[in-house]
Structures are given as C-alpha cells and as structure tokens.
C-alpha cells in the first residue's frame, strides 16, 4: 500500500488537500473561511483529475506534426469546465455572504 501510495504521490497530496478543505468547511465559523475551504477542496479535486489524465512522456494535447504521444485531454477539459462551475459557486457563495453581512450589520446599526 505504501509503495503504491508513493508512486501515486499526487493523488495522496490531493486527498490531503481535500481533507484540509473539508476541515475548514466543517469547523470554521467564518463564512469567508468556509468559502476558502470550498475552494481548497475544489483545487484538490482538480489536481486529482489532472493527475489521472497524465501519461509519462506525453506532450500537451496540442496536435503537432511528428508527436504521437499526448496526455489525455479529457480530464483537462473536465477540469476546465469544473473550474468555470467553481467560479459560479464561489461567486454565489460570496454573494450570499456579502448580503448576509449586510443584513446583520444593518440590524446592528
């Protein structure tokens, strides 16, 4: 198990990152920190996905004459789309947080 984990170091790292993000989401009371946690989780998953698509010695998926070996383009496309989705969710989270902040401050005033 250890040896396998070692060769899959990126996966292990991304899992650990994921858990760190999860901890922030679960334990931090601050809304902004929760959002940051969510982003850490997201990034961890992107790392994971990119790792899955890797191929040793593969070139970036940009077809050029003479090169036969490319890395898998599909995870990259997936990450690109998930990134945009991530932007959307983060933005919405910020919108709600900002509005909530406004409401609570408004009541204090």
């Amino acid at each position: 198990m250890l040896k396998a984990s070692f060769s899959n170091l990126i996966y292990v790292v991304s899992m650990i990152l994921f858990l760190i993000g999860f901890y922030a989401v679960a334990m931090r009371p601050s809304l902004i920190k929760k959002i940051i946690g969510i982003n850490i989780m997201e990034t961890a998953i992107f790392l994971f996905l990119i790792g899955i698509g890797n191929k040793k010695g593969g070139a970036s998926p940009l077809v050029v004459e003479g090169i036969e070996k490319y890395v898998n383009p599909f995870p990259q496309a997936m990450v690109l789309m998930a990134l945009v989705v991530g932007v959307g969710t983060t933005a919405l989270a910020l919108i709600l947080a900002v509005r909530l902040f406004e409401c609570e401050n408004g009541e204090k005033r």
């Binding site: 198990m1 396998a4 984990s5 060769s7 899959n8 292990v12 899992m15 899955i52 890797n54």
Partner: peptide, 19 residues
C-alpha cells in the same frame, strides 16, 4: 480515500484505462 488511492492505477502509466 488513501486506501482507494493506493489501489488506483499507477499515475502516468500509458496502459492505464484512462489512457
């Protein structure tokens, strides 16, 4: 998760199912 990760195909393996 680590258990699952350790069972995954070796990263960058050209013969892994993803590739």
């Amino acid at each position: 998760l680590l258990l699952a990760v350790s069972k995954m195909p070796i990263m960058g393996d050209p013969d892994s199912p993803t590739n």
